[in-house]
Nucleic acid binder design. Sequence first.
DNA 1: CGCTTTTGACCGGCGC
DNA 2: GCGCCGGTCAAAAGCG
Length: 308
Amino acid sequence: MNSSSWVDSLDLNASARSLRLETPKETNGSNLVVFGRKLSVKEETGALVEELNRVHEENAKLTQMLTAMCESYTALQSQLRDLMNKTNVEKELSPTRKRKSESGNNDDNVVVVGNSESSSTDEESIRKPREEIIKAKISRAYVRTDASDTSLVVKDGYQWRKYGQKVTRDNPSPRAYFKCSFAPSCPVKKKVQRSVDDQCVVVATYEGEHNHLPPSQMEATSGSSRLSSVPAGSAAPVKSSGPTITLDLTKSKSGDEEARNQSKPKIDSPEIKQYLVEHMASSLTKDPNFTAALAAAISGRMFSTKSN
DNA sequence: CGCTTTTGACCGGCGC
DNA sequence: GCGCCGGTCAAAAGCG
Protein backbone atom coordinates (compact mmCIF):
# COMPACT_ATOMS: atom_id res chain seq x y z
CA MET A 1 0.00 0.00 0.00
CA ASN A 2 1.94 2.85 1.33
CA SER A 3 5.03 0.91 0.87
CA SER A 4 4.63 0.97 -2.84
CA SER A 5 4.24 4.70 -2.82
CA TRP A 6 7.35 4.85 -0.74
CA VAL A 7 9.13 2.87 -3.29
CA ASP A 8 7.78 5.11 -5.95
CA SER A 9 8.91 8.20 -4.20
CA LEU A 10 12.30 6.71 -3.69
CA ASP A 11 12.60 5.94 -7.30
CA LEU A 12 11.29 9.32 -8.19
CA ASN A 13 13.85 10.98 -6.08
CA ALA A 14 16.54 8.81 -7.39
CA SER A 15 15.74 9.80 -10.91
CA ALA A 16 15.33 13.37 -9.87
CA ARG A 17 18.73 13.28 -8.38
CA SER A 18 20.37 12.00 -11.44
CA LEU A 19 18.49 14.59 -13.41
CA ARG A 20 19.88 17.30 -11.22
CA LEU A 21 23.34 16.02 -11.72
CA GLU A 22 23.06 15.75 -15.41
CA THR A 23 21.29 18.95 -16.22
CA PRO A 24 24.20 21.34 -15.82
CA LYS A 25 26.34 19.28 -18.12
CA GLU A 26 23.71 19.47 -20.76
CA THR A 27 23.35 23.19 -20.42
CA ASN A 28 27.04 23.69 -20.69
CA GLY A 29 27.20 21.45 -23.63
CA SER A 30 25.05 20.83 -26.62
CA ASN A 31 22.13 23.00 -25.64
CA LEU A 32 24.15 26.12 -25.53
CA VAL A 33 25.92 25.37 -28.70
CA VAL A 34 22.57 25.16 -30.39
CA PHE A 35 21.39 28.36 -28.83
CA GLY A 36 24.74 30.01 -29.23
CA ARG A 37 24.62 29.90 -32.95
CA LYS A 38 21.70 32.26 -33.05
CA LEU A 39 22.37 34.53 -30.12
CA SER A 40 24.80 37.32 -29.58
CA VAL A 41 27.28 37.15 -26.76
CA LYS A 42 25.11 39.29 -24.50
CA GLU A 43 22.03 37.33 -25.21
CA GLU A 44 23.95 34.18 -24.81
CA THR A 45 25.18 35.29 -21.42
CA GLY A 46 21.68 36.25 -20.48
CA ALA A 47 20.36 32.93 -21.59
CA LEU A 48 23.12 31.24 -19.71
CA VAL A 49 22.33 33.09 -16.53
CA GLU A 50 18.68 32.38 -17.00
CA GLU A 51 19.40 28.75 -17.54
CA LEU A 52 21.64 28.74 -14.55
CA ASN A 53 18.92 30.27 -12.39
CA ARG A 54 16.45 27.75 -13.69
CA VAL A 55 18.79 24.93 -12.84
CA HIS A 56 19.37 26.43 -9.43
CA GLU A 57 15.65 26.55 -8.81
CA GLU A 58 15.22 23.05 -10.00
CA ASN A 59 18.11 22.00 -7.86
CA ALA A 60 16.56 23.65 -4.83
CA LYS A 61 13.22 22.02 -5.47
CA LEU A 62 14.75 18.62 -5.85
CA THR A 63 16.87 19.12 -2.79
CA GLN A 64 13.77 20.06 -0.88
CA MET A 65 11.96 17.02 -2.13
CA LEU A 66 14.79 14.78 -1.11
CA THR A 67 15.12 16.39 2.27
CA ALA A 68 11.40 16.00 2.88
CA MET A 69 11.57 12.41 1.80
CA CYS A 70 14.51 11.70 4.03
CA GLU A 71 12.87 13.37 6.97
CA SER A 72 9.64 11.47 6.58
CA TYR A 73 11.65 8.31 6.20
CA THR A 74 13.48 9.01 9.42
CA ALA A 75 10.27 9.95 11.17
CA LEU A 76 8.60 6.78 10.05
CA GLN A 77 11.56 4.74 11.11
CA SER A 78 11.61 6.21 14.57
CA GLN A 79 7.87 5.70 14.79
CA LEU A 80 8.39 2.06 13.99
CA ARG A 81 11.05 1.80 16.60
CA ASP A 82 8.88 3.44 19.22
CA LEU A 83 6.11 1.09 18.35
CA MET A 84 8.33 -1.91 18.66
CA ASN A 85 9.66 -0.73 21.97
CA LYS A 86 6.13 -0.16 23.14
CA THR A 87 4.98 -3.60 22.18
CA ASN A 88 8.01 -5.08 23.84
CA VAL A 89 7.30 -3.18 27.04
CA GLU A 90 3.68 -4.23 26.92
CA LYS A 91 4.68 -7.81 26.57
CA GLU A 92 7.02 -7.56 29.50
CA LEU A 93 4.42 -5.90 31.64
CA SER A 94 1.52 -8.13 30.85
CA PRO A 95 2.06 -11.56 32.29
CA THR A 96 -1.12 -12.77 30.69
CA ARG A 97 0.74 -13.16 27.46
CA LYS A 98 3.34 -15.54 28.59
CA ARG A 99 2.84 -18.28 26.11
CA LYS A 100 6.13 -18.72 24.47
CA SER A 101 4.76 -19.69 21.14
CA GLU A 102 2.93 -16.44 21.01
CA SER A 103 6.03 -14.58 21.82
CA GLY A 104 7.34 -16.03 18.67
CA ASN A 105 4.42 -14.70 16.82
CA ASN A 106 3.78 -11.32 18.25
CA ASP A 107 7.37 -10.49 18.43
CA ASP A 108 7.46 -9.01 15.06
CA ASN A 109 10.85 -7.71 15.76
CA VAL A 110 12.05 -9.44 12.71
CA VAL A 111 15.06 -10.07 14.66
CA VAL A 112 17.46 -12.45 15.90
CA VAL A 113 16.86 -13.26 19.48
CA GLY A 114 19.85 -15.33 19.98
CA ASN A 115 22.86 -16.16 22.01
CA SER A 116 25.14 -14.33 19.74
CA GLU A 117 27.03 -11.56 21.38
CA SER A 118 26.29 -8.60 19.23
CA SER A 119 22.56 -8.83 19.00
CA SER A 120 22.01 -8.37 22.68
CA THR A 121 20.95 -4.98 23.86
CA ASP A 122 20.41 -4.03 27.46
CA GLU A 123 16.69 -4.59 27.33
CA GLU A 124 17.17 -7.85 25.62
CA SER A 125 19.61 -9.11 28.14
CA ILE A 126 17.06 -8.27 30.82
CA ARG A 127 14.31 -10.21 29.23
CA LYS A 128 16.49 -13.04 28.16
CA PRO A 129 15.59 -15.84 30.47
CA ARG A 130 16.40 -19.49 30.20
CA GLU A 131 14.23 -19.73 27.15
CA GLU A 132 16.90 -18.51 24.92
CA ILE A 133 19.54 -20.63 26.46
CA ILE A 134 17.58 -23.55 25.16
CA LYS A 135 16.81 -22.00 21.86
CA ALA A 136 20.04 -21.40 20.15
CA LYS A 137 19.27 -18.67 17.72
CA ILE A 138 16.12 -17.35 16.22
CA SER A 139 16.08 -15.38 13.07
CA ARG A 140 13.28 -14.37 10.82
CA ALA A 141 13.06 -13.91 7.13
CA TYR A 142 10.39 -12.22 5.10
CA VAL A 143 10.01 -13.61 1.66
CA ARG A 144 7.84 -12.08 -0.97
CA THR A 145 6.01 -14.71 -2.97
CA ASP A 146 3.10 -14.96 -5.25
CA ALA A 147 -0.12 -14.80 -3.26
CA SER A 148 -1.50 -17.66 -5.29
CA ASP A 149 1.45 -19.79 -4.40
CA THR A 150 0.13 -21.88 -1.54
CA SER A 151 3.22 -23.93 -0.99
CA LEU A 152 5.01 -22.59 2.01
CA VAL A 153 8.36 -23.10 0.48
CA VAL A 154 11.18 -20.77 1.27
CA LYS A 155 14.21 -21.46 -0.81
CA ASP A 156 17.16 -20.69 1.36
CA GLY A 157 19.71 -23.12 0.05
CA TYR A 158 19.10 -25.78 2.65
CA GLN A 159 17.05 -28.89 2.42
CA TRP A 160 14.07 -29.18 4.74
CA ARG A 161 11.72 -31.92 5.78
CA LYS A 162 8.24 -30.92 6.73
CA TYR A 163 7.07 -32.56 9.91
CA GLY A 164 3.89 -30.71 10.71
CA GLN A 165 1.39 -28.10 9.84
CA LYS A 166 -0.97 -26.22 12.06
CA VAL A 167 -3.48 -23.45 11.79
CA THR A 168 -2.75 -21.02 14.53
CA ARG A 169 -5.19 -18.81 16.28
CA ASP A 170 -3.96 -15.43 15.20
CA ASN A 171 -3.39 -16.28 11.59
CA PRO A 172 -5.87 -18.07 9.32
CA SER A 173 -3.14 -19.30 7.04
CA PRO A 174 -1.47 -22.52 8.15
CA ARG A 175 1.94 -22.63 9.70
CA ALA A 176 4.31 -25.25 8.41
CA TYR A 177 7.03 -26.82 10.53
CA PHE A 178 10.28 -27.92 8.95
CA LYS A 179 13.37 -29.66 10.20
CA CYS A 180 16.67 -29.60 8.43
CA SER A 181 17.07 -32.73 6.38
CA PHE A 182 20.39 -33.31 8.09
CA ALA A 183 18.60 -33.79 11.39
CA PRO A 184 19.30 -35.03 13.98
CA SER A 185 22.88 -34.02 13.39
CA CYS A 186 21.64 -30.58 12.43
CA PRO A 187 19.11 -29.28 14.93
CA VAL A 188 17.81 -26.37 12.88
CA LYS A 189 14.08 -25.93 12.55
CA LYS A 190 12.02 -23.43 10.73
CA LYS A 191 8.43 -22.31 10.79
CA VAL A 192 6.90 -20.86 7.71
CA GLN A 193 3.67 -18.95 7.66
CA ARG A 194 2.09 -16.35 5.49
CA SER A 195 1.93 -12.93 6.95
CA VAL A 196 -1.49 -12.20 8.34
CA ASP A 197 -1.25 -8.73 6.85
CA ASP A 198 0.09 -9.43 3.45
CA GLN A 199 -0.57 -12.80 1.88
CA CYS A 200 2.24 -12.18 -0.51
CA VAL A 201 4.74 -12.17 2.31
CA VAL A 202 5.84 -15.42 3.84
CA VAL A 203 7.48 -15.25 7.22
CA ALA A 204 10.09 -17.90 7.88
CA THR A 205 11.34 -18.26 11.42
CA TYR A 206 14.59 -20.12 11.84
CA GLU A 207 15.65 -21.69 15.09
CA GLY A 208 19.21 -22.69 15.58
CA GLU A 209 22.23 -22.70 13.40
CA HIS A 210 23.19 -25.15 10.72
CA ASN A 211 26.28 -27.12 11.59
CA HIS A 212 26.89 -28.02 7.99
CA LEU A 213 27.09 -26.37 4.63
CA PRO A 214 24.00 -26.03 2.52
CA PRO A 215 23.57 -28.46 -0.34
CA SER A 216 23.52 -25.56 -2.72
CA GLN A 217 26.36 -23.93 -0.95
CA MET A 218 28.12 -22.63 -3.98
CA GLU A 219 25.24 -20.59 -5.20
CA ALA A 220 24.04 -19.73 -1.79
CA THR A 221 27.26 -18.22 -0.60
CA SER A 222 28.19 -16.52 -3.80
CA GLY A 223 24.72 -15.22 -4.33
CA SER A 224 24.27 -14.01 -0.83
CA SER A 225 25.25 -10.51 -1.77
CA ARG A 226 21.77 -10.09 -3.08
CA LEU A 227 20.24 -10.08 0.29
CA SER A 228 20.76 -8.41 3.56
CA SER A 229 21.15 -11.08 6.10
CA VAL A 230 20.42 -10.83 9.75
CA PRO A 231 23.41 -9.29 11.37
CA ALA A 232 23.36 -11.47 14.39
CA GLY A 233 26.95 -10.98 15.18
CA SER A 234 28.16 -14.29 13.99
CA ALA A 235 27.78 -15.60 10.51
CA ALA A 236 24.18 -15.52 9.46
CA PRO A 237 22.63 -18.89 10.02
CA VAL A 238 20.55 -18.64 6.94
CA LYS A 239 22.19 -18.41 3.63
CA SER A 240 19.56 -17.64 1.13
CA SER A 241 19.92 -18.18 -2.52
CA GLY A 242 16.47 -16.99 -3.40
CA PRO A 243 14.80 -13.67 -3.05
CA THR A 244 14.92 -13.89 0.69
CA ILE A 245 15.12 -10.55 2.37
CA THR A 246 15.79 -10.47 6.04
CA LEU A 247 15.33 -7.33 7.98
CA ASP A 248 16.59 -6.50 11.37
CA LEU A 249 14.55 -3.51 12.38
CA THR A 250 15.77 -3.31 15.91
CA LYS A 251 19.25 -3.22 14.64
CA SER A 252 18.41 0.01 12.93
CA LYS A 253 19.42 1.93 15.99
CA SER A 254 22.78 2.89 14.71
CA GLY A 255 21.54 3.34 11.21
CA ASP A 256 18.69 5.37 12.50
CA GLU A 257 20.99 7.59 14.43
CA GLU A 258 22.96 8.08 11.35
CA ALA A 259 19.95 8.86 9.30
CA ARG A 260 18.72 11.21 11.94
CA ASN A 261 21.98 13.01 12.06
CA GLN A 262 21.93 13.32 8.37
CA SER A 263 18.49 14.68 8.03
CA LYS A 264 18.35 16.51 11.31
CA PRO A 265 19.89 19.77 10.60
CA LYS A 266 22.95 21.08 11.97
CA ILE A 267 22.87 21.69 8.31
CA ASP A 268 23.83 25.26 7.87
CA SER A 269 25.61 25.69 4.62
CA PRO A 270 23.81 24.63 1.48
CA GLU A 271 26.88 22.71 0.38
CA ILE A 272 26.74 20.51 3.43
CA LYS A 273 23.03 20.14 3.08
CA GLN A 274 23.38 19.21 -0.51
CA TYR A 275 26.14 16.78 0.25
CA LEU A 276 24.09 15.15 2.95
CA VAL A 277 21.06 14.89 0.76
CA GLU A 278 23.08 13.43 -2.02
CA HIS A 279 24.81 11.04 0.28
CA MET A 280 21.52 9.97 1.78
CA ALA A 281 19.85 9.54 -1.54
CA SER A 282 22.68 7.56 -2.99
CA SER A 283 22.94 5.31 0.01
CA LEU A 284 19.23 4.72 -0.12
CA THR A 285 18.96 4.13 -3.78
CA LYS A 286 22.10 2.33 -4.71
CA ASP A 287 21.06 -0.84 -3.00
CA PRO A 288 18.57 -2.57 -5.28
CA ASN A 289 17.24 -4.55 -2.37
CA PHE A 290 16.53 -1.55 -0.29
CA THR A 291 13.18 -0.69 -1.76
CA ALA A 292 11.97 -4.24 -1.67
CA ALA A 293 13.17 -4.76 1.87
CA LEU A 294 11.69 -1.47 2.98
CA ALA A 295 8.41 -2.26 1.33
CA ALA A 296 8.17 -5.63 3.00
CA ALA A 297 9.17 -4.31 6.38
CA ILE A 298 6.89 -1.31 6.32
CA SER A 299 3.89 -3.16 5.05
CA GLY A 300 4.39 -5.72 7.75
CA ARG A 301 4.75 -3.18 10.47
CA MET A 302 1.88 -1.07 9.31
CA PHE A 303 -0.59 -3.86 9.37
CA SER A 304 0.53 -5.09 12.72
CA THR A 305 0.14 -1.56 13.97
CA LYS A 306 -3.40 -1.42 12.68
CA SER A 307 -4.32 -4.71 14.20
CA ASN A 308 -3.06 -3.66 17.62
C1' DC B 1 12.13 -48.77 -2.27
C1' DG B 2 13.29 -44.83 0.09
C1' DC B 3 12.22 -40.32 0.97
C1' DT B 4 8.85 -36.63 1.64
C1' DT B 5 4.35 -34.85 2.68
C1' DT B 6 -0.05 -35.00 4.92
C1' DT B 7 -2.82 -35.05 8.83
C1' DG B 8 -4.98 -36.50 13.04
C1' DA B 9 -3.42 -37.65 17.63
C1' DC B 10 -0.79 -36.59 21.36
C1' DC B 11 1.94 -33.80 24.70
C1' DG B 12 3.24 -30.10 27.62
C1' DG B 13 2.85 -25.26 29.00
C1' DC B 14 -0.14 -21.85 30.41
C1' DG B 15 -4.36 -19.24 31.99
C1' DC B 16 -8.57 -19.40 34.32
C1' DG C 1 -8.29 -29.61 37.18
C1' DC C 2 -9.84 -28.33 32.80
C1' DG C 3 -9.55 -26.36 28.44
C1' DC C 4 -6.91 -23.92 25.02
C1' DC C 5 -3.09 -23.63 22.17
C1' DG C 6 1.33 -24.34 19.82
C1' DG C 7 4.51 -27.79 18.79
C1' DT C 8 5.71 -32.58 17.73
C1' DC C 9 4.97 -37.41 16.55
C1' DA C 10 3.99 -41.07 13.60
C1' DA C 11 1.16 -43.80 10.46
C1' DA C 12 -0.52 -43.56 5.95
C1' DA C 13 -0.30 -41.81 1.43
C1' DG C 14 2.20 -39.86 -2.37
C1' DC C 15 6.00 -39.52 -5.45
C1' DG C 16 10.16 -40.28 -8.29
